[in-house]
Design a protein around this nucleic acid. Structure first.
Lengths: 355, 355
DNA sequence: CTGTTAGCGCATTCAC
DNA sequence: GTGAATGCGCTAACAG
């Protein structure tokens, strides 16, 4: 473990002053060709990494970042993303950064557009977007691109955009995985239910579509003959839920497993719990409160987590480094898909370690 | 998001000078009762957290820490723990800390004792111990306790010791989980094999014992009638491996699932792969290279990870904070148990985000 | 006992 | 194009 290389060291090694090294590293111009050559030669030899905490300390500049996601419910998906963002800010507390949060109702496209329009009119150094409505997102990023404001996506990405980076799980693989799991914990050839949210005029739900594709491909690739029963439910009319489910699970239904490829599985878990339905395996996505409860109750067999905290953390960390050092950034970033059972859920606290 | 509270702010708020605040926070004495009251009142109101990077900067003190674990193989369990430790040091690079690493042969108790004796004679601020041999560990920590040198455990803890903190997965739950998984992916009542390492004179392997307990308890609690077949293998004589396994898996063996509660499952996976045995479900522990390969090949169905990087990271982070601020420390710290499949293994990179 | 102030390290930046 | 000055928040030495 040798001592860390400082700018001063590089300056000495290449026979110039620290100021010159700084200007070369940051392309601030006003250096002689001679000096540039000498310094670049040294830079190639040593692995210089600036101390970001000190950079923050000596940086006069203040940054402003806008974050926009659907409204938060405490402890749930989007809140976890914000938590990750806050953790990143905490970790880089020496960097002066001002964050403004704009949320909207994820079930109301007008609310989204209103907020996005507001954002598009603001002056900011960057925007972190928790993607939901595809078309609205496109509209927003076009305006940002015009003004050369960098933006990042969390949760999912959108085609035909050029984000600085995006942080998501691989939704296709998520579906693929769920197919593997449900078929391996149900008897061969069992009937499998798939819950489908009935929505109104929402073209997005891109994540669910990808998951469905992965799910279908797994079954197809393996010639798995299980019958897949699509079970529609209306997220907007919870009072009808029981009646809708009764259609499928009352009496001798022969469904041995159900998958819910969106985050709304908790209601079904609750239904199973109340009706004491125990012979149906259930797999859901995201650590919403009802989902976690279902997992703890033993109604949900596997819950798939997609590290929202880490998505937020990485997005903000990446952004900070970009704002400060303008380095090149890896655009596509997948977080992991975590398979949770009632045994492991209690230990799943991704962020206990950042504070 | 309001501005962070600084010592200076607290000083102003309580009408004293920063020096006084510092003296009160660090219990350096020489303060009037009056001043103490005023400052403590303010401290109660605001949530002051010092900026550790700056503390590191202004701290003159250098720390020395010893880390001892079994020998490392690149990319494997213990190496990952060291990786986590290095990440923590990187993250707190402003703190002047010197780490010395002492490793020993984990299959040779004499090698362990030799190294521990060496450590016990050294002057150091703290020791991080990757536990293996129980008795040797006890011997070491007794000497450390005499000299009031704090120590931390990673991987597992040892009874009748007083570590500053320990970072492990819950090995009992790990076994419990594995029992749940294997019984849910094999047909009811299937014969289940359990690989047992035959060791010589090693009383430890505490982790395996705990896992076995969890495993057995799961089956017992549920009155699961599966027959468990203990399959011995000698880790020290790999050339005999095939013959040993042939006894159980050649011809019509009727074993439908196997669990390996230590990290040596990769050899069996390799055996299955070579012999094209595909009708046996396999669950293993730890991301060793052979295990990961077995998972990717589809021979291993589930691989359980126990976040070694995070264990190391947290241990070092906790230690640094303790050394600097002497705050109270949470002793028992469980990391999560990660369930991996061939779908998710490619996204499982716990530390992509720390650098 | 208290307030003041000089470091601390190092990336940045300003006066020359 | 240079090199010295600056700043961050905390610690600790020192003068009162």
């Amino acid at each position: 473990m040798q001592r860390k290389i400082r700018i001063k060291d590089i300056a000495e090694m290449s026979g110039v002053s620290p100021g010159t090294v700084d200007r070369i590293i940051h392309n601030r111009g006003r250096v002689s060709e001679e000096a540039r050559q000498a310094v670049e030669e040294v830079l190639r030899r040593v692995n210089y990494k600036p101390n970001i905490h000190i950079t923050g300390l000596s940086l006069r500049r203040k940054y402003e970042v806008i974050i926009t996601t659907p409204d938060l419910m405490e402890g749930e998906y989007w809140d976890s993303i914000h938590l990750g963002i806050r953790k990143a800010l905490q970790e880089y507390e020496n960097i002066r950064i001002k964050c403004s949060v704009y949320t909207y109702n994820q079930y109301d496209i007008h609310s989204c557009r209103r907020v996005y329009d507001e954002i598009a009119a603001l002056d900011t150094d960057a925007v972190i977007i928790g993607t939901t409505f595809k078309e609205e997102t496109l509209r927003l990023v076009r305006k940002l691109e015009e003004r050369e404001i960098p933006y990042l996506f969390v949760d999912s990405t959108v085609e035909n955009t050029s984000p600085l980076a995006y942080f998501t799980s691989d939704h296709y693989v998520c579906g693929y995985l769920i197919a593997r799991l449900i078929t391996s914990i149900t008897e061969k050839g069992s009937r499998i239910g798939m819950l489908q949210a009935v929505r109104i005029g929402d073209e997005s739900a891109n994540t669910s579509i990808l998951r469905k594709m992965g799910f279908a491909d797994y079954l197809m690739e393996r010639n798995i003959p299980n019958e897949i029963v699509r079970i529609p439910f209306s997220a907007l009319e919870p009072e009808k839920y029981d009646r809708q489910m009764d259609l499928y699970f009352k009496g001798d239904h022969a469904i041995r497993g159900v998958v819910v490829l969106n985050s709304r599985g908790g209601m079904l878990a609750d239904y199973f719990y109340r009706k004491s339905i125990q012979d149906v395996r259930l797999i859901c996505v995201d650590l919403t409160r009802p989902n976690v409860e279902g997992l703890r109750n033993g109604v949900i067999d596997f819950l798939i987590g997609q590290e929202p905290e880490r998505q937020g953390f990485l997005a903000m960390k990446t952004l900070l480094e970009y704002l400060i050092y303008h380095g090149s950034v890896k655009v596509q970033n997948y977080v992991s898909l975590d398979i949770l059972t009632r045994d492991t859920i209690n230990y799943y606290n991704r962020f206990s370690f950042i504070s």
